[in-house]
């Protein structure tokens, strides 16, 4: 049962290649700085986390095409809300359980 008005899958080979190359770069940089201990641990953590978030955004935009859709962007809203909850879960747990560094 063929339907001739199937939606076009978003993106193009070019956009996928760009996303792939950017991801590789964003993987190599944190690897390099960590293995070479280019900064102190504190700074390293911030740097690699930022790289991770950037690479995550690349996945979302270039691979998962989160921005393409004529309909209301519920998926963007859902991911944004999800990120707020992720923050509550991870940061909240880390903060609440900080005393437990005495438990080994």
């Amino acid at each position: 049962m063929h339907d001739d008005h199937s939606e076009k899958h978003p993106g193009s080979t070019v956009s996928y290649v760009i996303g792939f190359l950017l991801s590789i770069v964003l993987t190599i940089i944190p690897l390099y700085v960590v293995l070479n201990h280019s900064f102190s641990n504190m700074i390293l953590v911030y740097v690699i986390m930022i790289m991770a978030v950037l690479q995550f955004l690349i996945q979302l935009v270039f691979f998962m095409h989160i921005r393409e859709s004529e309909e209301p962007h519920y998926n963007i809203l859902a991911i944004a809300l999800g990120i707020i909850f992720v923050f509550a879960i991870v940061a909240g747990s880390a903060w609440i359980m900080t005393f437990n560094s005495q438990v080994q």
Binding site: G92, S93, I96, M97, N100
Partner: peptide, 14 residues
């Protein structure tokens, strides 16, 4: 072995 029962309480009430 390093377990922490309070973490369950934390997750459960979350």
């Amino acid at each position: 072995h390093g377990g922490d029962p309070m973490m369950y309480v934390n997750l459960f009430w979350m």
